[in-house]
Design a protein around this nucleic acid. Sequence first.
DNA 1: AATGAATGAGCTTTCATTCAT
DNA 2: GATGAATGAAAGCTCATTCAT
Lengths: 212, 212, 212, 212
Amino acid sequence: MAARKPRRKQDIEKRREEILKAALDVFMEKGYGTATMPDIAQRAGVAAGTLYLYYPSKRELFVAVVKNFIVSASLIDLLSEMPKDDFPTVLKSIVKNRFDLVKNPDFSRVPLIMSEVQRDPELKKLWLKDFLQPIMQRIEIPVRMMGATKKFREYQPEVLVRVIGGMFMGFTLLRIVEGDASPLNKLDQDKVADDIVNFILHGVMNEPKGGV
Amino acid sequence: MAARKPRRKQDIEKRREEILKAALDVFMEKGYGTATMPDIAQRAGVAAGTLYLYYPSKRELFVAVVKNFIVSASLIDLLSEMPKDDFPTVLKSIVKNRFDLVKNPDFSRVPLIMSEVQRDPELKKLWLKDFLQPIMQRIEIPVRMMGATKKFREYQPEVLVRVIGGMFMGFTLLRIVEGDASPLNKLDQDKVADDIVNFILHGVMNEPKGGV
Amino acid sequence: MAARKPRRKQDIEKRREEILKAALDVFMEKGYGTATMPDIAQRAGVAAGTLYLYYPSKRELFVAVVKNFIVSASLIDLLSEMPKDDFPTVLKSIVKNRFDLVKNPDFSRVPLIMSEVQRDPELKKLWLKDFLQPIMQRIEIPVRMMGATKKFREYQPEVLVRVIGGMFMGFTLLRIVEGDASPLNKLDQDKVADDIVNFILHGVMNEPKGGV
Amino acid sequence: MAARKPRRKQDIEKRREEILKAALDVFMEKGYGTATMPDIAQRAGVAAGTLYLYYPSKRELFVAVVKNFIVSASLIDLLSEMPKDDFPTVLKSIVKNRFDLVKNPDFSRVPLIMSEVQRDPELKKLWLKDFLQPIMQRIEIPVRMMGATKKFREYQPEVLVRVIGGMFMGFTLLRIVEGDASPLNKLDQDKVADDIVNFILHGVMNEPKGGV
DNA sequence: AATGAATGAGCTTTCATTCAT
DNA sequence: GATGAATGAAAGCTCATTCAT
């Protein structure tokens, strides 16, 4: 009812972030069209009118949310410190230690936000350029390095990047959608990771001793 | 004040379908919350009020759209005639001949509709049970058969199903999102398919033991 | 669903009455603005469109209902056979035998319909002229006859008519509104009638022995 | 898009009342079903949306109107200061000085609002309990006192209360309905009051000299 | 800067009315 | 004559946005 928290300059940025976070939550939860500014205001703990001091419209707020999501989503970091070890070791490390993407609050939001993004040409372009392509590029580095070695089969890098990237994406999507109903929940997660790693390394075929 | 298109009894079912189709289009295009009944009516070529002769509310119309999508999506058919050939041959056939999912108007809608579905508990359950699980089960059949043969590596079937299924899903999702910007468009599609098939069969590693 | 009851000329009048009766019911139950043509059609057992074969609009149907109510309401009959007995006897007879107005389905509807009537100048005039005034006039006859006799006190007939008429009206209204909650329900109805008659005849004062 | 009349905190209650008053007027004038929120808004001098800041729905607004009417209707006050004089004097005073109920804007609304109230079980109960019964009880006090005196005839109090109360109610109703057409308008209002008082005191019969 | 009452466009929904069957 | 699908104006209501406080 009364004015809350008069702020120093620094605090204003903080409030901007609170609003952004609240907006992300609400947009994810309800979808762009169903989310309301009062919803968001309440979640952010401010009055509805206050939102307009920070963002000129619902649309702009949404755009800001998506942009912020793109830059802040920690997905890229997941792949950031690709160590210098040999590929199987690195892969195992990634899958075992960081492939808890389902629990990563950012990642699990991707499918919810993505469909809204697809509907806005500007956001769609942004999403592709600043989110998807960076991830692809990050994957492309080791993939290309692999291509230079006899140890690995020869694939067109553009394809391999998308096959492996898509695999992670789709696998995670499935876990999200299946949720508690997923039979994966009952398995030893270490063995799940082993299977994933082995599939990437060797595929489904048992190589006959002594060559194809 | 005026009546325009009264119909014969037989046409009523047809009109119901027209509305359903128009609604699918609009819901996909704008999202549930942003789509409006006048939008849908116009697309269906009827008056707004007419929608309510067929579906009691916007919500119910959406539910009907999703249910209809689930049963009519031809995705399952993509895998229907799993021939009795050996697995690599079958796989190649599927990927080459039917893996045009991106162009399948149903499939390319999945990511758009899915996020809305996730927000409705009833639809979420339905989606899982009547859409996703049937697809998974279809994939599971050959996967389990493979598991019984020495020719294939041993994986936990639940994992393998989701890894391969997710791969297709994620790969397709990427193509949709990348759209015209995808570098895959410039490649020979046959070779793309070959790479996918080979990746599934053999993974990335070149088997060292005495052979190519 | 299919055409019902094709009719001979005579039956058409019957259907007109069915519709009128259904409309009366629904208008009373819901009020003019809240009642709907589909409501009425369903109650009458006909299709909505059929109503318009008999009455050109909802308004006209309502007017017809009110007019029909006015002429058919049996209220006037309650006072019809005013016998030639002396007044107290006649009054007792009326109150005891016919003052079950509460249970008279027409009378108990009066207050519900009256307010709607008040809102339509044409109906208001009609109601006054064809309903209320005839009742008043019927009461006025014995009242004026009384005025000619020494046995009765001298009142201005216009006043007396309205006092007695209003008394019946208001008393009945109260019974309707109080419904089951009325303490009158627990009393001997014969004694209730006696009290009413005595009140009309003698008022509340006990005449001092030996005259005024 | 524009804001017109923001208010100081103190004015908010005032506005609530303005809306309530406008709503009463419109509901009376048109009936619940026919009255519209835009109607009411216009009458109150606010935008339609503003109504919903004060009352969550048309129904709730109507309920508030009725409740407010019940508590604010000054009918009870009409009977409030029952002086200690003897009954005939008191009665004369009431009828002559305060029986201008027709011109009492509250009372003349009773019949219009009552029928709508009858259709809502909750309001019906409220109306009975908080409006009608208090009035009855107020009348019951002198009536019971009368019963204890030899000066008055013995009636069952429940009956007498309703006969007299109903008489006032019905008489007034008639005046409202007859409006300008009432012949009472041409009479000396003092003499009208005299007749009413005398009727209540002595009824229609001329008591024979020398007792009952 | 922050508030939240006010606005009114536009949404979902209803329903009086029409008319091809 | 009867039907009921179709219409579209208009209702109740929501909510993005504004602005006096």
